[in-house]
Amino acid sequence: MNYCKLGNSELKISEVSFGCMSLKEEVDNVKQLIHLAIDNGINYFDTADLYQQGQNEVMLGNALKGFRDKVIVGTKVGNQLREDGNGWDWNPSKKYIIQSVEESLRRLQTDYIDLYQLHGGTIDDAIDETIEAFEQLKEEGKIRYYGISSIRPNVIREYVKRSNIVSVMMQYSLLDRRPEEFCLNLLQEHTIGVLARGSVAKGLLSGKPVTDYLNYTTSEVKKTIEVLKNVSREDKSIGQTAIQYVLKHPSITSTVIGIRTEQHLLETIATSKLKVLGDEEYGLLKKSNKPAFYENHR
């Protein structure tokens, strides 16, 4: 497994990491998958207080007993569940963040969170107040570093200017190349790590039935997948090549993959052992479609 430094932090993260949102609630299976991931070099596990109304953090905390000093844990905050259980509301206030970290620490059964991320964000937020909350938690030792999870260029720019974020999590794949316009380069220039999610585009780039995706029609998606198959040949799966495409960009620290099965986990881990995607292959993949651009929140 290859490891990359996350931005200007001291965290070295496996280039393929474990997105916990997809985990089902069979506890033994969760422990087995996470322990297998650790045994094979994955050291970053990403969750959120919103997933399964906090139960996802509980499952991860239980599975990491005895392994806490060997792994890097990231979770997220900002979506406040309603008391009646019917959805959630956006709340990036300092009070709510300070309150929420205590609940996440309890569920994760840990004294600190390695990477605490704002789970969204709008340009109308009281951004300085949000930053103040994260900085206070750093001073108190409850979190080591903080970042944001956002695809909004205007929000990302503000946090780059005004905060000490070490990372941005964003959707990025061969079928969602919007970050290539300027977000990835901006973050690279400021030594802020990128955690890529959605690298296989909801499974379209790993074998699921073809359909429309974002601004791409079904026929356009098929064209991209055909190029992906040609580049992959018999050496690797198209899903592995799709992950390699994401990792090829120098701004990417890790691709966070949602894992549900042992087979999927082992195939994902094997990506790190494959020959690096060549420049010619990378060029062919880039030519397989026309990149879209963010239309809103610019």
Rank of each mutant, 00 (worst) to 15 (best):
G120L: 10
I259W: 07
D176M: 03
Y116W: 02
Q109A: 12
S150M: 09
E26G: 00
S206R: 06
L184V: 11
L137T: 05
V168E: 14
N29I: 00
T241R: 05
E135T: 14
V276C: 09
E103L: 05
I113E: 02
D235H: 12
I127D: 07
Y51Q: 03
M21A: 10
D49P: 14
L11V: 03
I123D: 05
D69E: 11
E280V: 10
E158M: 10
E132L: 12
S150A: 14
Y159T: 08
G66V: 06
I259C: 07
Y294N: 04
D235S: 11
E220D: 12
N8E: 11
V101P: 09
I72H: 01
R298W: 13
T130C: 13
D212L: 00
Y116D: 11
T218A: 15
I257R: 03
T130M: 11
A270L: 08
Q109D: 15
R152V: 04
S22H: 07
E234K: 10
N56C: 04
E262A: 10
G19P: 03
E57V: 12
D128M: 14
F45L: 08
H190P: 15
L284K: 14
E10W: 03
G74I: 09
V200Q: 04
Q171G: 11
E181G: 05
R82S: 09
R162L: 08
W90D: 08
V77R: 01
I113T: 01
Y112Q: 02
E181R: 06
T268N: 07
V77C: 15
I225Y: 01
K275D: 14
T218D: 15
D69Q: 01
H297S: 04
K65I: 09
S93L: 04
Y213D: 12
S173M: 03
P92Y: 07
N29D: 07
A196G: 06
Q55C: 04
D89W: 06
W90Y: 15
V246I: 01
G120K: 06
N8S: 15
D49L: 09
D176K: 00
L265G: 05
E129W: 09
I123T: 05
D28A: 00
E102K: 13
Y145H: 14
S17E: 13
Y172N: 03
G141T: 07
D125A: 14
E295G: 15
T130A: 12
E281Y: 00
M59K: 02
Y116L: 07
T268D: 05
E15Q: 05
Q109E: 15
R260E: 15
V30Q: 08
V200S: 02
K65L: 13
I13L: 08
I238N: 04
I252L: 06
S149C: 12
Y116E: 09
V227E: 12
Q80G: 03
L115P: 04
S254W: 03
S167D: 12
R197D: 03
L50I: 14
Q240C: 02
L195V: 13
I13P: 04
V73T: 01
H35Y: 06
G120T: 07
S237E: 08
S150T: 04
Q117R: 12
L175G: 02
M170P: 09
I243H: 08
T241D: 11
V71A: 05
